[in-house]
Simulated assay, not measured.
Amino acid sequence: MIYRDFGTSGFKASAIGMGTYYDMRWIFKTYAGVYSNKKTKINAIKTGLENGINLIDTAEFYHTEGIVSEAVKNFKRDEIFISTKVLPTHLSPKSLERALKRSLKNLNMDYVDLYIIHFPNYAVDLKKTLKKMEELTEAGLIRNIGVSNFSFKLIKYTVENLKKYNLCAVQLNYNILHRNVENNILDYLKKNNIALMAYFPIAHGKTARNKNLEEKFNYIRSKIGDVPGTSIALSYLTSISDNVFPIPRASNPEHVMQNIKYADIKLNDELIKYIQNNF
Rank of each mutant, 00 (worst) to 15 (best):
S241I: 04
N175Q: 08
L130H: 02
L100Q: 08
I42R: 03
I45E: 05
R221S: 10
S231F: 02
I247K: 02
K29A: 14
T47D: 02
Y35M: 09
L55N: 13
Y31H: 14
S239P: 00
E160N: 14
K163G: 09
K266R: 15
G48V: 07
G52T: 07
Y35N: 05
V170F: 07
I45F: 00
Q258D: 14
S231P: 00
V124Q: 01
P246Y: 11
I80H: 07
F6D: 03
G146A: 13
L154M: 13
I194F: 12
A71F: 10
I2A: 04
V147L: 09
H178M: 02
H204V: 01
Q276T: 09
N108T: 03
K105T: 12
I56Y: 04
I265Y: 11
F217Y: 13
E254C: 00
R4A: 06
S251D: 12
S69F: 02
L167S: 01
F75A: 10
H204P: 00
D264C: 09
T64G: 05
R102K: 15
L96H: 01
K163Q: 13
I176G: 06
Y188E: 11
I116Y: 04
K211D: 14
I117G: 02
D113H: 06
G225D: 14
A32D: 05
N149H: 08
L271K: 05
N243H: 15
N175D: 14
L87Q: 12
R209P: 00
E270W: 11
F6T: 01
K261N: 05
A13H: 08
M257S: 12
R209I: 15
A139C: 01
M197C: 12
A198D: 03
M257I: 09
N161K: 08
P253E: 10
L91M: 11
I82S: 04
V68Q: 13
A15H: 10
G225V: 04
S69H: 09
M109P: 00
K131T: 05
K223A: 15
Y274V: 01
P120D: 13
E254P: 00
V159F: 05
T129R: 03
D125E: 13
N184E: 15
I82N: 02
N210F: 13
K101M: 13
I265A: 12
G33C: 11
I232C: 03
L91C: 03
G66L: 08
T47G: 06
V147K: 12
T137L: 02
K85I: 03
R143D: 01
F81D: 09
D78W: 01
V124N: 00
E70H: 04
A59H: 02
T238W: 10
K223T: 03
G17L: 03
